[in-house]
């Protein structure tokens, strides 16, 4: 692992001072294993970063209760911070307030679109999202699309099809 090599000068240094901003930057380099184009910061999974002395506490929240990626995400956070010289890491899982797609960053939505997944439309507190949302086809940009299934390849996605270019596509559902 060349990352370890690059940074190993920092590893044993107990006076290394971690800055919160730096931790957020590092977390933005940890990707969601199920939607690998999004960082966990883009997704809004990281809720809080607290630094007390040398201990860095990171609060994360699951997207869905059964999200199988949470354990992998915790491990990846740990590994990535370790590789960057942060050794005292505490990861806390919080369920409340419940995760919502409203926390997804604008940058994240653009990345999703470029990747071929339609980003969430509207705000989760607006109950309209349950009704007929108009989702833009990520392939041809047509708004003439239809819902095939409310449940897709992962918990966070629904399956749509474009009536114009006929391509089926994933929609990251508003939640």
């Amino acid at each position: 692992m060349n990352v370890l090599h690059q940074h190993n000068t920092q590893l044993p240094n107990p006076s290394f001072n971690v800055e919160e901003k730096k931790v957020w930057e590092l977390l933005d380099q940890v990707y969601d294993p199920e939607v690998p184009v999004l960082s966990i910061v883009d997704l809004g999974i990281v809720r809080k970063v607290e630094i007390e002395g040398l201990v860095v506490t990171i609060t994360i929240t699951p997207t869905y209760s059964g999200c199988p990626a949470m354990d992998v995400i915790s491990m990846n956070i740990r590994l990535h911070l370790l590789q960057n010289g942060i050794t005292d890491i505490k990861i806390v899982q919080a369920l409340s307030p419940a995760w919502t797609t409203d926390w997804m960053t604008e940058k994240g939505k653009q990345k999703l679109k470029a990747y071929g997944i339609a980003p969430p439309v509207g705000k989760s507190f607006d109950q309209q999202w349950m009704e007929d949302v108009q989702v833009e086809c990520p392939n041809c940009r047509s708004n003439n699309t239809r819902l095939l299934s409310e449940f897709g390849s992962t918990s966070c996605k629904a399956l749509f099809q474009c009536n114009d270019c006929k391509e089926p596509f994933d929609y990251f559902k508003c939640h």
């Binding site: 059964g66 299934s149 449940f151 390849s153």
Partner: peptide, 20 residues
């Protein structure tokens, strides 16, 4: 297929809730 995925997703949600 779509409904196979739907019922499996619901199963996953429920097992996740049970874990909590």
């Amino acid at each position: 297929l779509e409904q196979d995925i739907a019922i499996s997703n619901i199963a996953l949600d429920l097992i996740g809730q049970a874990r909590n």
